[in-house]
Design a protein around this nucleic acid. Structure first.
Lengths: 220, 220
DNA sequence: TCAAAAGTGTTCGGCTTACACCCATGA
DNA sequence: TCATGGGTGTAAGCCGAACACTTTTGA
């Protein structure tokens, strides 16, 4: 076993310090499919590769704050809420230096957050999950883990963040669920289930421009 | 919003670096109750306080490796397997310097891992969960989160690590479950459930010295 | 022999699944 | 008017919860 640097988190002066990065899987729902926000790097390493937006934790900033900082600095997205996924510490996960990353996911409505590539990002785009490019670093794995966590949370809780507009039909909600879970669900059973959760409230409006004239719901 | 130190995890030379610590909730099952291994600090800050064993990540070491390093250096425990719980990044969680901690939990048989206080640890002890002292730093919270994760994993998977001896009775297994979950379970339902999971195998032996002569089981 | 723990089966209710027809609306 | 999607109910199977008596063993 390797000799430890510091035995104590409190007092040792010779602590080995290391860059902590945050990486964020920003999920959005667009054209009826679940998408993930990717950015293209214009610098080495992994120049020209698509990847999850990420960057170093700021001094005096917590990890969730840093995710917001990073997103704002790379994509223009501001103040979104996040869920922690996991921490990645393999020594060689970054080709140049040691970086420990903490990954997060977020659920947003793309139409509320116009994105622009900033700083070293040359391109930015929402990708459907089944049309993903190969990602830089170990972000394929990070994305896989985040999606799994999202699915788990969705099954447990019915939290769909702010992926839908304020008023939505049950079919739209079902499309969202199917898109996230990657499986199709029975219409009647789905309706029964979400209605008896008692979190939806029917409005008096109906959705126009679609056959059948479905009732619009809102969150209670 | 605060200016970011580095915008890029890859190239910037001026990255803000910070100590990463690991903290470990080592659970054991002793005298029929779930216990947690605590150590008493002999140095400031929190001198004289009980806390979870923890320490800085080592250079060139992953987080799980570092947990093992730290445990070995503080308690003598070697090579146990770990589950990641969460990452804690509040700026003031350490009174002297900035530390980001990643917490883990582990399940071991205390009789297999004799513990001794080493380095700056003045005392070490297994505590029942309902007799806990107040812990130093934010370890009360870390422990609470770890216990919740352990319970969740237990409900999902039937994984009880190596908390039990090789041969055990179903009642012993049930005692373990009740102790971890903090609730009592119906004997018949519990038996049915674990047996139909098909992970237990009855041996031809019966446990001696206990009334009723229960059959000993082992993991399949 | 008696006290304590082991071992065993059934019933009930709720939840999930599967499934088909009529209605409202836009084209 | 017709094609599309919206809206609805019921039956079957599965799972978890509740519950009592007999058997085995140690004391």
């Amino acid at each position: 076993m390797q000799k430890l640097g510091p035995l104590d988190t409190a007092v040792s002066q010779d602590s080995y310090e290391c860059t902590i990065a945050v990486e964020c899987c920003v999920f959005g729902f667009q054209e009826n499919v679940l998408k993930i926000l990717l950015v293209k790097r214009s610098i080495e390493p992994f120049k020209g590769h698509w990847m999850l937006p990420g960057g170093a934790m700021g001094k005096g900033r917590t990890l969730p704050q840093s995710v917001n900082d990073v997103l704002n600095n790379l994509t223009g997205i501001k103040r979104i809420s996040l869920e922690q996924v996991a921490c990645y510490s393999e020594v060689d996960r970054h080709p140049i230096k040691r970086v420990v990353s903490v990954s997060f996911y977020a659920l947003i409505k793309p139409e509320n957050y116009p994105v622009i590539p900033k700083n070293y990002i040359s391109d930015i785009s929402w990708y459907a999950l089944d049309e993903l490019p190969r990602l830089g670093f170990d972000h394929d794995r990070l994305l896989k883990d985040a999606l799994q966590k999202l699915r788990q949370n969705l099954r447990d809780n019915l939290v769909f963040g702010e992926l839908l507009p304020d008023r939505f039909t049950i079919t739209e909600l079902q499309d969202l669920y199917e898109s996230i879970l990657g499986e199709s669900l029975d219409r009647r059973n789905f309706r029964k289930k979400v209605l008896q959760m008692n979190v939806l409230e029917a409005t008096s409006e109906k959705k126009k421009g679609v056959k059948g004239g479905p009732v619009l719901y809102k969150l209670r």
